[in-house]
Design a protein around this nucleic acid. Structure first.
Lengths: 134, 134
DNA sequence: TCATTAACTATACAAAAGGATACTACTATA
DNA sequence: TATAGTAGTATCCTTTTGTATAGTTAATGA
């Protein structure tokens, strides 16, 4: 059971350059470095979607493969391994026959949710825009 | 001249599954589809950083290459071309000698800023965490 | 005269990411 | 007995990404 995601207008405002003077300031450099650090962890075609899926509860390998449209078993297991190494998900093996493996998002993994939530919001709007265009 | 980015606590709260019942609900499916749509536009190693850089004001090719650490000219021009096609940046050529080319974020491109801002925030925290660990 | 800058493109190549298919071990079900 | 499901791995192949080097045009600076 889950509750619907609560969508509120975002209050964080990003105020950036209007003129062209301090474009290469330390602020800009730090901003970009932080983005780079984040991309090192979640870039690629699949990781964000996997974490997004696990935000709805723990899942097994096959459930994830069904959720993450288009991913193959090889990629899925590779991506999950990397997410585990970075402490974003946990992997639990139950010795049932056949084995059951459960993947779960960690508390640290949950700190990525604001990013993912913004991505989902943007994607929804983008789809509307594209649809109404042609 | 720019003003410092105003960082406020984010109020949007993401409430997702606690139990394990409706994990494959339409809500989850729609959420993941939207993420997928967004990734189609901004995934890869460079696009987010490029847009992040352009958020600080319009820039020329070489300025961007200096900003986006590690990118080569070929990749940069390829990525800029794709961003232009998707209506996220504009490219203006001035017939000075030698030519000047300016890249600027569009209004639509600016709608990506909340995502990028969250990424920057997370990257900053992540770096702190990694640093304090070892 | 020579080097340098700007904003690229062309070419060749290497490395990483991703995809398709087959296969494993084991059990349950038809 | 045959099939399907679970959670993958192994292998091979293609595509994408990235790197390095050279070349273009015209102007400026030493």
């Amino acid at each position: 059971m889950y509750r619907e995601a609560i969508i509120e207008e975002q209050s964080a405002e990003i105020v950036v350059a209007e003129g062209g003077h301090d474009k290469n300031s330390p602020t800009c450099t730090n901003y970009l470095r932080s983005i780079h650090d984040t991309l090192d962890i979640i870039s690629g075609k699949w990781k964000v979607t996997i974490i997004g899926s696990l935000s709805f509860g723990k899942k097994r390998f096959m459930e994830l493969q069904r959720d993450v449209e288009g991913i193959g078993a090889k990629m899925l297991s590779k991506e999950l391994r990397e997410l585990e190494i970075n402490g974003l998900v946990t992997r639990t093996v139950y010795n049932t026959k056949p084995v059951t493996v459960e993947y779960q998002i960690t508390e640290y993994g949950k700190t990525l949710q604001p990013i993912i939530f913004e991505m989902s919001k943007w994607g929804t709007q983008h789809r509307k825009r594209i649809m109404s265009k042609d």
